[in-house]
Design a protein around this nucleic acid. Structure first.
Lengths: 121, 121
DNA sequence: AAAATAAATAGTAATGATTACTATTATTAT
DNA sequence: ATAATAATAGTAATCATTACTATTTATTTT
């Protein structure tokens, strides 16, 4: 896999952010540095980077894929009111149980839903 | 919320199945009993039932929403090869940790990825 | 270094799951 | 029974994502 200016840029944007941007948000950021980059290029590279395991996709109920450049095992809390996604770096589920069931686990995605402290008030 | 024949049917199909069907699969099942039911009605009712908490939506990477009528807290294992979704009725994460962070948890969705025993071989 | 080969891009068109819309039908209330 | 309300069927619109194509950029070969 070659790393063109555009691909590098997309990868850098995702791993440089602590939120969980959508393709469109990444596209907007990218255009500030590479004004001619096309949306298709952003999508293509996001998909390639995800396939390579260089970023993680979060499929939420808003129908848009969110991208996470933080590859450490962690979960996410999604606020039902404001939609904010909060990282949860608690200890992960034990995978042993699943291995004992004949399932080999390569990754996990856990989402918790509720109200964040702002919206709870 | 009135329970029309169609709404009842959609609800029954989802809660009667142990797989995790998409809207289209539910539509096909529904048409066997109610041949004139429209796809829009299926979608509308699935959304309403989900809002009411009578079923759970699973947003997977195949871009189609899967519906789960089993409301007990459980996780899912998704096979990276065949896409099969397997229920995991292990004990859930403890929510106390999150409550202590000021997050009130109303539900959770956890996905584990890997290869199922069939595909592993 | 020029020619040949391969990969990546920009820009646009197509896809497809989901939602919105509208006229009609069914249900409930007065 | 009539009026008011909700739900439906069927179709059109939406919109995130993908596919496509001609062109550009990078790599390899001679």
């Amino acid at each position: 896999m070659r790393f063109s200016r555009q691909r590098e840029l997309v990868a850098d944007i995702v791993s440089g952010r602590k939120d969980h941007p959508t393709a469109d948000a990444i596209y907007l950021s990218a255009r500030e540095i590479e004004p001619n980059i096309s949306l298709g290029t952003v999508y293509r590279n996001l998909k390639l980077l995800a396939d390579e395991g260089r970023l993680v996709t979060l499929e939420t109920s808003d129908k848009k894929i969110h991208y996470d450049g933080d590859l450490s095992i962690h979960s996410h809390f999604i606020c039902e009111d404001c939609g904010k996604i909060i990282d949860l770096f608690e200890s992960a589920h034990s995978h042993e149980l699943l291995e004992n069931m004949g399932l080999s686990v390569s990754s996990e995605k856990c989402f918790y839903y509720g109200k964040c402290s702002d919206c709870k008030r």
